[in-house]
Amino acid sequence: MSSIVVQSFVTLDGVVQGPGGPEEDVSGGFPYGGWQFDYDDDGTVEAWEENTEALLLGRRTYELFAASWGVWSEEAEGFQGELTRRYNRIPKYVASRTLGEVGWKNSYLLGPDVPAAVDRLRSEPGGEIRVWGSTELIRTLAEHDQVDEYRLLVHPLVLGTGKKLFGDGFPHTRLALAESRSTPSGVVVNVYRRAAG
Results as ranks from 00 to 15, higher is better:
2 S>R: 15
3 S>I: 14
5 V>Q: 07
9 F>S: 14
13 D>E: 03
19 P>V: 04
19 P>K: 02
20 G>D: 10
22 P>I: 09
22 P>G: 07
23 E>D: 15
26 V>W: 04
26 V>K: 13
26 V>G: 11
27 S>I: 10
27 S>M: 06
36 Q>M: 14
36 Q>R: 08
42 D>I: 09
44 T>D: 13
45 V>I: 15
45 V>Y: 11
48 W>V: 14
50 E>S: 13
51 N>S: 15
54 A>G: 10
56 L>I: 08
56 L>W: 00
61 T>A: 11
61 T>R: 10
61 T>F: 00
63 E>Y: 00
67 A>Y: 06
67 A>K: 09
70 G>W: 01
73 S>N: 10
75 E>Q: 11
76 A>D: 15
79 F>N: 14
83 L>Q: 13
84 T>E: 07
87 Y>P: 00
87 Y>K: 03
87 Y>T: 10
98 T>G: 05
99 L>R: 03
99 L>I: 09
102 V>E: 03
102 V>T: 12
102 V>F: 05
107 S>C: 01
108 Y>P: 01
108 Y>N: 03
108 Y>L: 07
108 Y>T: 13
109 L>W: 04
111 G>F: 00
113 D>G: 06
115 P>V: 07
115 P>T: 04
118 V>S: 08
118 V>G: 06
118 V>T: 07
120 R>S: 12
125 P>R: 08
126 G>H: 03
127 G>M: 10
128 E>I: 13
128 E>F: 07
129 I>E: 05
131 V>I: 14
137 L>H: 08
137 L>T: 08
140 T>Q: 13
140 T>Y: 02
140 T>I: 09
142 A>L: 10
146 Q>A: 12
148 D>R: 00
148 D>A: 05
150 Y>Q: 01
152 L>Q: 01
152 L>V: 02
153 L>P: 08
157 L>P: 05
158 V>C: 03
159 L>F: 11
160 G>H: 10
162 G>T: 12
164 K>E: 15
165 L>Y: 01
166 F>S: 02
168 D>F: 04
171 P>D: 04
173 T>R: 15
174 R>W: 06
175 L>D: 07
176 A>I: 11
178 A>W: 05
179 E>P: 01
180 S>Y: 02
181 R>S: 14
192 Y>E: 00
197 G>M: 11
197 G>C: 08
